[in-house]
Amino acid sequence: MKFKTFAVFVGPSVLMMLLFIAFPLVSVFLQSFQVTQPVYETVEVETCTPGFLEQTCVTEMSSVPKLDEHGEIITTTTFVGLQSYRNVLEPDRAWAAIKAFDWRGLQTIDFWKALRFTLTFTFITLPLVIGTGLAIALAINNAARSVKGPVIFVSLLPFIITPVIGALSINWLFRGDGILTAWLERMLDRDIALFAQAWTIEVLMMIYRVWHVAPFAAIVFYAALQTVNHDSLESALIDGATRWQRLKYIVIPHLMPLIVFVSMIHLMDTYRAFEEIVGFSSQGYVISLQWLTYDFLVPDQAGNRSVSRASASAMLTMIGIAIILVPLLKRTWRDHRRSH
């Protein structure tokens, strides 16, 4: 294919990605070193209240935003270096907490709190998703042909449901005296408040995430189970391998590339965890890195968005993404080399 033809085919897509992905990335990078603020001026304001004989007047100096001729607030953008990063990371407080082995103190800083949750969330759910997915795939593979279709249909439901709604629906089962909380209380014979402390909310979020992603893993593994080499299974059987040994030495190695693939996708997606926080409205207890950026971007009561701090937290989030991406890129590169 000639370059010109190639460019025409690929051009629109590349243009969109440049305009809406590459360009914002650069602008986030730049924003993280700048602060845009309204220009304030100090004005003398005389406030008068009616009084007897003559009114009482107070003169105050107050600072108000400067307006331009259209009545809009004038803003300036100044270069502040790493200030926004410092605002997000709060290195002094964090360092003091680390030196004093004060874990709680460290967890009062939003960024470190979010980082702690995001990492535990990612690494605890990973084996659970792979394990559950594998178990479901093996069970579907084992099932009678006639039930496979309906079972796959039901399995797909948690996967395609809107994440926020999925989290909400699990939330509703447990919130207050929700049906499952009531059931747990009856089983354990004690009062349970699942939304009163951080760790129970985290457990619920992990349950939600496994529920949501396990179907994806299961479908991928199930498809791969169809291509397991029957001859090696036969010979293993003749050699007297038990069911467990066959699973361990033939089926799992066959699935290994896909287990790696699903793990990569899962790491990428869980690191971006966000919808759980919205669905469980857990921001008072638990937040994630992406939620932190989101929160900076939502206007506060005065209607201001802290774009610089959002940019700084976004850039810090990207460091983790870069680390996750390295093995994935290596793998793609290796595959590419092999195929050419």
Binding site: S27, V28, S311
Partner: peptide
């Protein structure tokens, strides 16, 4: 592939202003 891994909030921080 790299773009696929980016969190949407990072990009939205770039669009908003």
């Amino acid at each position: 592939l790299v773009f696929r891994a980016l969190p949407p909030s990072v990009l939205v921080a770039g669009y908003l202003p």
